[in-house]
């Protein structure tokens, strides 16, 4: 599954030296890539949080134009809706109910305009990994990721894992250029135009939540969801990191994340942690709640519970 594109090059070793020389002379032609014309404005673009309102508006307009051209349409919108006042998002997942059907994985890939390469190779970026766990054990090393049998299986339970939007996030600490940070509403985001692709955040994350664009992301025109957020589901670039944003484009408009709405079992609960009457506070008060990898000291906004 989401193993990223494999351009295994068996030919380089065999290819003659002359051919290599030819490739070198082509260097000038591919740096920068002729397929994506060099854009000085894009190159010079400042960090998202440092953009003035005018600069932000210009950036969003530029991106909309680029995406419309690239995906051959005219209805692309890229917004930068800010966090809502008095909102701190949190997620709770009922392990007693989840049956491991992976519908959430599919909904997530569609909603977030994720890279979809060769389906036979499982070359696709997925933010959610569903673990088939042995009953009686919380040890992820005993889990199975690539199960294909009918679910739910006897003696198993299922634990979907995605970004935990940690309040003390190792990825945020790791990033050398502050390209990833936690917003006021608790969502940990990435500025795809600022990330340098060093992947230190991926090494730091205890939940394996961060996914890298190893190649130019592939996305068919007809699969596009054109209503996007700058920090969320807008199409990404080659060589940058991405991750679950709780569907920032939806939740800042008052909707629930796509994985929440698709779930056929009602295992997924989403809401405002600061709302005393909301579902999250109720679950924390009434259910047997735990957080994954508590020993990593990440203080996540993602809870698991049993009925």
């Amino acid at each position: 599954m989401s193993k990223s594109t494999r351009f295994r090059d068996e030919d380089l070793g065999r290819r003659g030296f002359l051919k290599l020389l030819g490739a070198v002379s082509a260097t000038a032609a591919v740096l920068p890539d002729p397929a994506e014309a060099f854009d000085l404005e894009e190159f010079m673009q400042k960090h998202f949080v440092e953009l003035s309102p005018e600069q932000l508006a210009k950036t969003l307009a530029r991106l909309e134009k680029q995406y419309n051209e690239k995906y051959d349409r005219d209805d692309f919108s890229v917004n930068a809706a800010p966090p809502l006042e008095g909102v701190r998002f949190a997620y709770a997942l009922n392990l007693s109910k989840c049956i491991g059907c992976r519908k959430c994985v599919e909904a997530c890939v569609e909603e977030n305009n994720q890279h979809r390469g060769d389906p036979d190779k499982g070359d696709r970026i997925e933010y959610i990994r569903v673990l088939e766990m042995e009953k009686g054990s919380l040890d992820v090393e005993k889990s199975v990721h690539d199960y294909t049998h009918e679910v739910p299986a006897e003696g198993k339970y299922y634990m979907p894992v995605q970004c935990h939007h940690c309040n003390d996030a190792p990825c945020v600490k790791a990033c050398p250029v502050e390209a990833t940070w936690q917003e006021q509403d608790g969502i940990v985001v990435v500025d795809y135009n600022w990330c340098i692709g060093c992947r230190y955040c991926a090494a730091a994350c205890p939940y394996w939540a961060r996914k890298f664009n190893w190649s130019e992301p592939r996305l068919e025109d007809e699969d596009i969801i054109p209503d996007t957020h700058y920090l969320g589901n807008r199409p990404r670039y080659k060589g940058v990191m991405e991750k679950c944003t709780f569907c920032i484009n939806r939740v800042r408009q008052g909707l629930n994340p796509a994985c929440h709405d698709i779930c056929p079992t009602g295992s997924r609960k989403f809401g405002n942690l600061l709302d005393p009457a909301g579902p999250i506070r109720q679950i924390i008060a009434e259910k047997r709640v735990f957080i994954l990898k508590e020993e990593a000291g990440t203080d996540p906004s993602f809870y698991y519970f049993f009925d």
Partner: peptide, 20 residues
Amino acid sequence: IAAYTRQAEHGLAVTGMTDQ
């Protein structure tokens, strides 16, 4: 340099690295 040119063109997918 020839190999790096290939990498610059196709991305780090030309390496053996993965998300894992």
